[in-house]
Amino acid sequence: MLRRSYNVGQGLAPDGTLDVGLVFCCSQPDVARQFATVRKRLEGGRFADFSTTTGGGYFLALPGVADASDWYGSALLDP
């Protein structure tokens, strides 16, 4: 799994607290075996008290094109 995090800071929120966060991005071939397993392992841990997930999503990348007769996603449909 390749992973990277980015710090985000928007200054002060209207209530006077810091509006900061962390954006976590990762890339892996098997979401269930890699990212979901790590996420489940972190649930209920000491870090959970300091972390709130406010959004997320999975974005899939299709395999590339090998030649002129190939097309995006063909590897997903060929037996």
Rank of each mutant, 00 (worst) to 15 (best):
D78Q: 14
F24H: 11
F35P: 06
L62Y: 00
G21D: 05
V20T: 06
G56F: 00
G45W: 11
V23P: 02
R41S: 10
T37F: 09
A75Q: 14
L18I: 05
W71N: 00
G64M: 03
G9I: 04
V31G: 00
S27N: 03
D15A: 02
L42K: 06
F47K: 00
L77W: 11
P79F: 00
D49H: 04
C25M: 14
F24A: 05
V23S: 09
D19M: 06
G16E: 02
R3F: 12
R4D: 06
R41Y: 07
G45T: 09
E43M: 12
F59L: 11
F47H: 01
W71K: 06
R41H: 11
G21A: 11
F24E: 10
S51R: 05
T54M: 11
G56L: 04
L77A: 12
N7S: 10
L18M: 12
P63A: 09
G55Y: 10
A32I: 12
A66E: 15
A68N: 12
T17H: 14
D49P: 01
C26G: 15
T54H: 13
D49G: 05
P29H: 07
K40L: 10
L2C: 09
C26N: 15
T17I: 09
A61W: 01
L60I: 03
G16W: 04
F50R: 12
V8I: 08
G16V: 04
W71T: 12
G45L: 12
G55H: 09
V23M: 13
V31E: 01
T17Y: 06
G57T: 02
D70G: 07
F24N: 09
D78K: 15
S74G: 11
D30G: 07
V65F: 08
F24C: 08
D70K: 04
A32H: 13
G57V: 01
L62C: 00
L22G: 01
M1I: 03
T53L: 11
G44K: 08
T53E: 10
P29A: 05
F35S: 05
T17P: 02
F50E: 09
M1F: 04
F59V: 14
A61H: 01
G45S: 14
A48V: 10
V38K: 00
G16C: 01
L62Q: 01
V38M: 11
Y6M: 12
T53P: 01
D19K: 11
Y58D: 09
T53W: 07
A61Y: 02
G9F: 12
